[in-house]
């Protein structure tokens, strides 16, 4: 389990007359009853985080909800999330639902000794590097498809012109540049649409993940790596290298993948050029990646 150094969070709801204590257990005081309902995390059926609340469903199908309006302080909300995820790491049978995030789910972290040597830096993600990197990844995945699409559109327009517009022998000088121009323009429109979508995805992530505009402490060490909100960072929680698969380097970020999904984004601007090369080599070594 990780994030055990974070103290528990108490949340009181006047409207439902409930007091929640979230720590090593999930506890609910209801009304005037001095005896709370205390749930071990293994006794929960599911936990969820939406845009507006945390929800907890117990094995006997009771559902408790903690609205974000009860935790206006973002730091407390992030602490609560870290406690929940740290506990759920020990109980993978409990279903956990949350919106898409940049920062990796804390259930992936394990508690270990603070690394003796590590690349460490702090910073805040910015839109440009995330969007650009999203687009870069898009290009990497879909670049050939864009080119193929462009060629197909060019050929389609050319054929259309050939069959339906004028005499080919007289007009071929025009058909070729027109079809090429159409192919390029339409492909560009598709590309721009994808870029706008990538930006939209980032904005959606920002709204959904209150951690994304916080200062993050990034660590890359022999034992593993981490990207944790600075206010929650102790140095004792890392993701092991054995738990991830490979990494990709763009102009702006290093991205580490697990199960075909990106889990760790490390902004390059936080390190000098020389350090960036060292980090690239270091990660490649840890992941046995050439």
């Amino acid at each position: 389990m990780a994030f055990e150094n974070i103290d528990g969070v108490k949340i009181a709801s006047v409207e439902t007359e409930q007091v929640f204590l979230v720590g090593d257990t999930f506890t609910v005081f209801e009304g005037e009853n001095p005896i709370p309902s205390i749930y071990n995390w293994a006794d929960l059926k599911s936990v969820g985080e939406s845009k507006t609340e945390f929800s907890f469903e117990t094995a006997d199908s009771r559902v408790y909800k903690i609205g974000f309006h009860l935790i206006p302080d973002i730091s407390r909300r992030l602490r609560l999330r870290a406690i929940i995820e740290g506990n759920l790491a020990k109980h993978p049978s409990v279903e956990y639902r949350h919106l898409k995030r940049i920062l990796m789910n804390k259930t992936n972290y394990t508690s270990c000794d603070a690394p003796s040597r590590a690349f460490v830096s702090k910073g805040v993600y910015n839109e440009k590097e995330i969007s650009y990197s999203n687009v870069t990844l898009l290009n990497t995945r879909l670049g050939k498809i864009f080119i193929l699409t462009g060629i197909l559109i060019t050929i389609s327009v050319f054929l259309f012109c050939f069959f339906f517009i004028g005499d080919f022998m007289e007009n071929y000088k025009y058909f070729i540049p027109i079809s090429t121009f159409c192919g390029v323009i339409i492909s560009m429109f598709i590309y721009i649409a994808c870029a706008i979508m990538a930006k939209f995805i980032y904005a959606t992530l920002l709204k959904a993940d209150s951690a994304l505009d916080r200062e993050i402490t990034f660590t890359v060490a022999e034992d593993g790596f981490s990207a944790i909100e600075t206010e929650l960072h102790t140095g004792y929680d890392l993701v092991r290298w054995a738990d991830v698969a490979y990494f990709v380097e763009t102009n702006y970020v290093f991205i580490i993948y697990k199960d075909q999904k990106s889990v760790f984004w490390l902004p390059k601007r936080l390190f000098s050029k020389e350090r960036q090369r060292e980090i690239s080599d270091f990660i490649a070594t840890r992941l046995n990646q050439k």
């Binding site: 389990m1 055990e4 150094n5 974070i6 103290d7 528990g8 969070v9 108490k10 204590l21 720590g23 090593d24 257990t25 506890t27 001095p34 005896i35 709370p36 205390i38 000794d113 603070a114 102790t234 004792y236």
Partner: peptide, 29 residues
Amino acid sequence: PIEVVPEDMLTGFLLRRHDKKASNYDTLK
């Protein structure tokens, strides 16, 4: 029995993380 534990003590017990590392953990290790 839970009902005889003073509320503030019970709350403190439930909020406290029992596997918290000592503040001087690195020295001890």
